[in-house]
Design a protein around this nucleic acid. Structure first.
Lengths: 354, 354
DNA sequence: TTGTAAGCGTTATCAG
DNA sequence: CTGATAACGCTTACAA
């Protein structure tokens, strides 16, 4: 590996001049610049990032901490981060699947000194509060944070609104007994979706019923389980809202295995709008979450603070969700999008079936 | 940020001693070690990675270059990489979605000096040859590389065997007219799967027919298109093999929209075994690809070479695939796994339906 | 067992 | 415009 010294010697200039060329300094004549460039490329010289960041105290990298990398949602978030970071010429250091707070904090320390900012998904209260100290001395953007986040910069999804819109939509077809397959207990998305579900019910004069809320953990398998649990009730619900699409898929699969038709016998709604949802049979009515934008916005939020490495100014941005009408909810709207049934509730809006 | 000097001063020792403590050197008394540890943690000291790697010439990071981050396959690969890297206390620097060779090479240079090894997915010939030079001076493992790779270390998927096994399986039900929805032209996985398809046909005395091979690009939409193209033939094929599951999903969706039943009217097979395949209606017969293992193996291969930064010794590892029997192929095996129809062909094996 | 000091490859601050 | 030279925070002979 050629160093700046090699280039300087070979080009007959000082290392300072070579450095200036690579830092786009105007303090260098066009001739020298050109000459240095040629020598450098002949020697295959590339500035050493470590040395650079040692003196500038900037790494040009952002860290990304995720609870897990599993499934389409996370991969879309990373994609948004990756592309936005690249546009700003930043590198992305990822670390995922942190089982507990300890390994999470270990990951944070190992990144320290190597990054100029951190994007952390902290979907439960424990994680959020563990990261709290760090958010006070370093640029951090929290994705989908738990409730302990007043003084941090956060970016979340309109979970409540999405769930609310979904339930109201189901009700618009006359469904009165709407069940829910919940997400993991500590998970903030799951909690907010549940809250949206309950509020929608109450707003229409129905008291949420515990036996209609069955547990789940965001996996297909738990959606399948959840359906089976619900079918054991003496009175079958006429609609089920799953807290994410993966569970909705398991749910539909279980209903089919039990000889029930969706949506004729039972309507189903999901959450996330993963890519394959529209190809399911029946196509899944769901709430679209723009994970790509979530990642992209996070980068855009953090970028201005990477220079000073001062904490990101506390503020809370919400990425809207969209109700996507397809056939699993029994919606006739899926065929006639102009129907009067439409009801908007910001920031969750409805869209044509994709 | 506290530096090693702060700790040394505060603890009343030299910076060398502090350094030794952090490098697990035996040349330091237990008392001093303990004392330094305490002072360090009080000052919230964390060694600066840049300074460290400047002198040691090791970054403890590996770079990951992917063509795109889209979909379950890539996210699983990254997951495998991430976990294996963490176990070895390595960081992971990702960069994906490189439209062309130029942006790819730009990503490679921007990583130089920041990584001790590179895992690059180079699913087409252009990418593979662009990376070629680099593989001769640096530890690189190529994932699913194109044909120009004799002297590199590579890790690939048993695409050919998987496709071969799938086609032979379909034939075992008497299908004679088996169509294929292909993947992108330049993509090596797509090419190998196509080759496996054709070879299986020829091995059973059938000459592959161009009109039965329709183009696709690995997206659901192209699977849908592909089905429509095939249905325009005067003689409908009795089975279709899609080069990946996403296309198979689009395919099934199109067949259903055309009033055809799967597998009764037409059998369908996919490739990848993405998580939701078993929840489709009908559950999809496919070829399982262990993307997680692919990522994990790549890290394990490269790790021994990160110390010296010498090129990885050329060798070619193949991750096996498994035929997964479900209902979309009309397999009665899916119910009776012990049937005589089973036929094994290493390294692709069959498994019970999940 | 501990300390001293010479780098690692850059950038930044001066002088010229 | 260009060149010396002192940092940056750390590891590692070598000395003590």
């Amino acid at each position: 590996m050629a160093t700046i010294r090699d280039v300087a010697r070979e080009a007959g200039v000082s290392i300072a001049t070579v450095s200036r060329v690579y830092n786009e300094s105007p303090l260098v004549s066009d001739d020298t610049r050109e000459h240095v460039r040629q020598v450098a490329s002949r020697l295959d010289y590339i500035p050493n990032g470590a040395a650079r960041s040692l003196i500038t105290n900037r790494t040009h990298a952002i860290g990304v901490l995720l609870p897990d990398l599993y499934g389409e949602f996370f991969s879309e978030v990373i994609r948004g981060i990756d592309l936005a970071a690249r546009r700003a010429r930043f590198q992305v250091l990822v670390s995922s699947s942190h089982a507990d707070t300890d390994t999470l904090m270990a990951a944070v320390s190992s990144m320290r000194g190597r990054i100029d900012g951190l994007i952390a998904m902290a979907p439960d209260e424990k994680t959020t509060s563990a990261l709290r100290d760090f958010t006070r001395k370093f640029p951090v953007v929290l994705l989908n944070p738990g409730p302990v986040q007043a003084e941090c910069a956060t970016l979340s999804i309109a979970n409540f609104d999405g769930a609310y819109a979904m339930v109201r939509h189901l009700q618009s077809f006359g469904h009165r007994s709407i069940a829910m397959v919940k997400g993991p207990d500590g998970n903030i998305d799951a909690q907010e979706r549940l809250r949206g579900y309950r509020t929608a019910l109450r707003d229409s004069g129905i008291e949420p019923e515990p036996s209609l809320e069955v547990p789940g953990d965001f996996t297909e398998a738990s959606g399948y389980e959840g359906a089976m649990t619900l079918l054991q009730r003496q009175l079958r619900p006429t609609a089920v809202f799953a807290a994410n699409d993966y569970m909705a898929i398991g749910l539909v699969s279980a209903l089919r295995d039990s000889g029930l038709r969706v949506p004729d016998d039972i309507a189903v709604g999901g959450f996330d709008d993963i890519a394959i949802s529209k190809y399911l049979s029946p196509p899944l009515t769901t709430v679209r979450v723009d994970a790509y934008t979530l990642g992209e916005r996070a980068v855009l939020q953090i970028l201005p603070f990477t220079r000073t490495r001062k904490p990101v100014i506390a503020h809370h941005e919400v990425v809207p969700t969209q109700l996507v009408l397809r056939r699993s909810c029994g919606s006739t709207l899926a065929m006639a999008p102009d129907s009067l049934h439409r009801q908007r509730r910001r920031p969750t809006s409805e869209v044509e079936p994709g």
